[in-house]
Design a protein around this nucleic acid. Structure first.
Length: 198
DNA sequence: AATTAGATGTTCT
DNA sequence: GAACATCTAATTA
């Protein structure tokens, strides 16, 4: 079952980010099913968060989706190379989002390897936001704004065995964000091998 | 094992 | 021009 709109439209992004750990991320782009458990995320808290693209009410063609209603994908192109996948949270008008930083592959390993130009499955396949985007098949801006309720990208409830210990720490690559760079808004599953840093 | 260069779209100065 | 929610391959020690 796909997660419902109400899951994403809650007010507290940090709670949503933690709740997303262990859920199943699925993509059926190009008629190919690929899935993985979410193992690492980061919360970005809209206009009041200096690390967020929408901070201070910054509204551009790129950030527009974040201001829409929760349960949509915010896919953006980073460093001229990588497509990163975020989940838009909170209601319309609020620009909260959760960045998916790492997943543990469950299904479609062969396709993921092919997309990532690897010949075998190992941690390197999906342990980082750019890698996750590539493994899911996100290659163009066309995937920006997809509705997770009805389209080719979504998140499902997963067996509860993944509800293990969660670690909270600072976000990565946001040193420029002054005091907000210190917020412990990066979460990962403690025992998982599938995270972006050792 | 650790550091560095290079890839380059979007946004802001 | 410069900076940026990164990754890889090559180089250095």
């Amino acid at each position: 079952m796909r997660l419902k709109r109400e899951f994403y439209e809650r007010e507290n992004v940090v709670e949503i980010a933690k709740d997303l750990l262990g859920k199943q991320l699925v993509s059926s782009i190009d008629d190919t099913l690929v899935a993985g458990y979410i193992t690492e995320v980061e919360a970005y808290s809209g206009v009041d968060d200096k690390a967020c693209h929408a901070n201070n009410g910054k509204r551009t063609r790129r950030t527009e989706v974040m201001f829409g209603s929760g349960g949509h994908a915010y896919v953006y192109f980073c460093y001229g190379i990588h497509h990163m996948m975020n989940v838009v949270c909170n209601v319309q008008g609020q620009a909260d989002a959760v960045l998916i930083r790492a997943i543990q592959p469950i299904e479609g390993m062969d396709v993921m390897c092919q997309r990532r130009k690897k010949d075998r499955v190992n941690k390197n396949l999906t342990c980082g936001p750019g890698k996750v985007g590539q493994a899911l098949g996100l290659q163009t801006k066309a995937h920006n704004g997809l509705d997770l309720m009805r389209e080719v990208l979504w998140i499902e409830e997963a067996p509860n065995r993944m509800a293990e210990e969660v670690f909270a720490t600072t976000r990565i690559g946001v040193d420029y964000a002054e005091e907000d760079a210190l917020k412990p808004w990066r979460f990962y599953i403690k025992n998982s091998e599938w995270i972006s840093k050792k």
